[in-house]
Write a protein that binds this DNA or RNA. Sequence first.
DNA 1: CTATGTGAAGTGTTTCACAGCC
DNA 2: GGCTGTGAAACACTTCACATAG
Lengths: 220, 220
Amino acid sequence: MSAPSDKSPESGPNDVPKAVVSRLSLYLRELQHLLHDGSRTTSSTQLGSLLGLTDAQVRKDLAYFGQFGHPGIGYHCDELVREIKQILGTNHPWPVALVGVGNLGRALLGHRGFSHQGFQVVAAFDVDPTKVGRKIIGIPVYGLDELPRVVKEKGIRLGIVAVPPTSAQEAADRLVAAGVDGVLNFASVTLTLPKNVSTVGVDLAMELEQLAFAVANRRE
Amino acid sequence: MSAPSDKSPESGPNDVPKAVVSRLSLYLRELQHLLHDGSRTTSSTQLGSLLGLTDAQVRKDLAYFGQFGHPGIGYHCDELVREIKQILGTNHPWPVALVGVGNLGRALLGHRGFSHQGFQVVAAFDVDPTKVGRKIIGIPVYGLDELPRVVKEKGIRLGIVAVPPTSAQEAADRLVAAGVDGVLNFASVTLTLPKNVSTVGVDLAMELEQLAFAVANRRE
DNA sequence: CTATGTGAAGTGTTTCACAGCC
DNA sequence: GGCTGTGAAACACTTCACATAG
């Protein structure tokens, strides 16, 4: 009985390192480019070198979820794309709510990359009454009090916070109260949310800081 | 002679884990909020719990760069802010070039968070001749052929790529050719650049994918 | 008593290297 | 020949726990 029988009684991914999941997105993106460029098949070596990773890393990452490769051949691009989408949950579309129709919010409303990966921003929300009731890029703008109704009606599970830092916590709270399960936060604050709600934070200034550090510390 | 004498002959940060640097940005942001809220001092315990980290982690991270704390007291917020800015290199402002004045580009031009952390977008570039020559939010838009001159004149070292994926590699190449040392890339492609140039990639759809995965795999 | 800084222990992730397969 | 999947080794990071300082 030396076998690790507690693998994962149900089909759930027992405990996958977060870094692995984020590389999964990278693999997916690269595979889609390869497909678009006419490749039907690829290998862990090719995929890795395109992304600056080792071949072993690519294989180990994918092995967390199953056996998708074909020895001697490699991976079929379309097959692997389907598998990864299945794992990430993007094999079917996600309706998304956006809170905050400012500069950044409007840019996100029109962002092609979202719909390309199966995310549809189907409703926007703002406190500004001059924006409420209008449509922007075909997407209706509601007042925040309509959040619960619209979230329910459209089956929305993901919300994007694109408001100023001072309003971000409240915006997130209202999204959660309306029934959203995950929040993508663009405000430069750490949100405090119930732990049954997932959060991803993107701070654009922080990204530039990381870049500045890297540049300032090159070569010694 | 058991001491690891090869610590770091010069003052350069020998090999700091990348995760540490990114938490440094987190500490900075939280310290600025604490200062704004009137705190003069904090502790590794407080800072950690605000960010969901252990106290030991906070202390270890900071210890990579020096001894900034006061036993029995904690850390002086303003002092630590100065130190972290010094480490990140944001104790003096960075002029930044932006390539691509589309939806996202315009949002980035007006992004308050950048200037708040010492980044000034001082020039924008686009291929569209109807945009060139105008000013957007006070920032002049140039043609791409003016990149080398403007980068040199304004002492720009960082560039932001906010163009469609198919043009991203070329935009980055031209930034690098113009003399930029670091690129923040918003296009959903992995850039191939000389290794003396630093890159940070932000893919908004990837962030939503990570969120979707987390939501789809809760509780099980 | 509070809080830092740090070696040592513990945990997690990546790389290695090879058996097995096409 | 080429390539995957995977235990085992190597490496990196985090947590523990305590000596030290105010």
